[in-house]
Write a protein that binds this DNA or RNA. Structure first.
Lengths: 125, 125
DNA sequence: TTTACTATTGCAAATCATTCGCAATTGTGA
DNA sequence: TCACAATTGCGAATGATTTGCAATAGTAAA
């Protein structure tokens, strides 16, 4: 927590309540969360601000993004990992990232975004 | 083309103009296309129908989906592949899929969806 | 062929995620 | 404590996607 807040400060960003609160939630969750998920946990912060904070975190490379059901899911960039999400109930687990980047002739600064989906055992019964 | 149309017919789906036209466009394109891209190429088909056709194709596993800039991009599931897209100009190239699925204890029917992003040489100058 | 039935479509309205403009607020450094 | 710029909250705007429903068009059977 302190680490990341320091980083922000050093880059000239203010340490505001919305930023600290969103960061707090991301820190305490190991599932990927949507803006709506995060906003529900802190209604003291406006949803537009949640968006702005997350967009900032994205620019700074603090979060990874996955896509599920037409919405973005965010989680902190710790060890590189993805999530596998049940299509039916939304249950999810972390999956370590094993993807190795190749070199691309025509591209620099390559990043990847991956989401695994499946049907969990519960839903499969 | 005929192949896929046969498949649809055999599963009890009607061979309608919207389905054939959308399929036609997907067949003739090797980039991932958004609903809007596809709709522009066939204004004779309503956009809502393009959505419905693509959702059907998705259910049937005929298309792969990638996410870019808050919209879904569709392309036919031929050889497994992804795309790398320039964040700045949208230029994209195909990338063969090298991702190997692991076994998951708690999930079946696992699929993955990956999008690579980067900055292309042109935009990098 | 023609008929009849149902799936599918087009259209317009609704929904939902995300962004934006702007005035009010709040960190921060002096 | 003050002053200024960055950031927020709010509400409105945007854009993608979905939905309800009456009209239309495949399809299978007569």
């Amino acid at each position: 927590m302190k680490d990341i807040l320091e980083q922000l400060k050093n880059k000239g960003y203010k340490l505001t309540q919305p930023r600290e609160k969103v960061l707090g939630i991301l820190l305490h969750n190991h599932t990927a969360l949507s803006v709506q998920d995060i906003h529900k946990k802190i209604d003291s912060v406006d949803k537009a601000s949640v968006y702005r904070v997350l967009n900032l975190f994205e620019e700074l490379g603090l979060v990874n993004i996955e896509n599920f059901n037409n919405e973005k899911l965010y989680c902190l960039t710790r060890d590189p990992h993805h999530h596998i999400i049940c299509k039916k109930c939304g249950y999810s687990e972390e999956v370590p990232c094993t993807y190795e980047h190749h070199d691309f002739n025509n591209f620099d600064n390559v990043q990847h975004q991956m989401t695994l989906t499946g049907v969990c055992n519960n839903c499969n019964k």
